[in-house]
Design a protein around this nucleic acid. Structure first.
Lengths: 142, 142
DNA sequence: TAAGTTTATTTGTATATGCAAATAAAATTT
DNA sequence: AAATTTTATTTGCATATACAAATAAACTTA
C-alpha cells in the first residue's frame, strides 16, 4: 500500500517515520561500499572535517544525543577508524590514518546516494523538500 | 545548532532522520496520556478500525516489517489491549474491550498532536509538507 | 579556598526496528 | 495425491537510539 493512501497518510508522525525508514534503507545500500551504516559514516565524515572535535559538538551537529555519540564513537574505535584522547573532562575525537584513506570512497558514497535519490525524485523537487523538512525540524526543535 | 545550518542540511538521509526523531519525540509526549508509544498507538487504532485485521495487512498499511508487527502485537497483548486468534496459517488481531474504551482518548491524543504541530508550523504548510513527504516516500518505496 | 553548581562524557538499561532463518499452512503443479 | 512452491507468521539475533543516573572535571560564589 502507498503511504499517501494510508489511513495515516496525512499524519506528520506516520509520514516522517515511514519516509525516514525508506531513506535509511537506501542510504544503507549506498554505504555498504565502505562497510559502514550511514550514521557511523556521517559521524566519521564530521570527524574527518574537524579532527579533534568534541562529542558535545558532534551531538549538536548531528542532532543525536550525547550517549548515542559515545556509542557510535566506540564502534568506530573498534573498527580502527577513530581514536579518542582525554584531557580532563573534555574528549577529542580524531580520525585514524585508515579513516583518512577512506575519505575519497566516502565522498563517492555520498555522491552515489545523492544521485540515486535525485534520479528518482528530481533535483529540484528533492532539494526543495529537504529544505522544507529542515526548516520544519528546526521549528519543532524548540 | 540548526539542521538547516548543518554540514548535512542538504542531505535527504540526515534531514529525514533528524526530522523523524524530533517528530517522534513530540508524538511520544502526546501519547503519554494513554500510556502508549506512538507506534503501538497507531497499530492499535488500525486494529480498532478493522477488527480481525491480519498482521500482513497491518504491515502493508503501517509500512513496518512483519516481524515488527508481531512484536508490537505481543506488547499490546501483554497490556490486554489486543488478542490474536489463529486459524491455520492466518492470524487475526482483535481489540479488547479495554482497547475499545480507550478509543475516544486515543482520538483526543491524535487531535492534540495534530494541533500541536499545526500551531507550530501552520496548517497549510504542514499539510503540504506531509503530502510531499508521502509522495516522495512512495517513489522511493521498492 | 571550600562548597556548591554547571558542564562534558560515559554507563546502565530499555525500546524500536529490521533481516534472515524457521515454521507451518495453503496453493499449485506434476 | 505427492511433490513443489508460495504465503503468513513468528523467532533468533543484531543494531540504533534514547533516557536517566553516574562520574568527573571545571567554573562560580561566598
Amino acid at each position: 500500500m502507498k503511504i499517501t493512501d494510508s489511513k495515516y497518510g496525512q499524519c506528520l508522525y506516520f509520514t516522517s517515520a515511514a519516509l525516514a525508514r525508506k531513506v535509511e534503507k537506501l542510504a544503507i545500500e549506498s554505504w555498504k561500499a565502505v562497510d559502514l551504516p550511514p550514521s557511523y559514516a556521517y559521524l566519521l565524515m564530521a570527524v574527518l572535517e574537524e579532527p579533534g572535535i568534541q562529542p558535545s559538538l558532534l551531538s549538536a551537529e548531528l542532532h543525536l544525543q550525547p550517549s548515542t555519540i559515545t556509542r557510535l564513537i566506540e564502534k568506530l574505535e573498534e573498527k580502527k577508524l577513530a581514536v579518542r584522547t582525554y584531557e580532563g573532562k573534555i574528549t577529542n575525537v580524531y580520525p585514524t590514518p585508515k579513516a583518512k584513506e577512506m575519505q575519497p570512497k566516502m565522498k563517492e558514497c555520498l555522491n552515489r546516494f545523492y544521485k540515486q535519490y535525485t534520479s528518482l525524485l528530481g533535483e529540484e523537487e528533492s532539494s526543495r523538500l529537504v529544505q522544507d523538512m529542515g526548516k520544519i525540524a528546526d521549528k519543532l526543535g524548540k
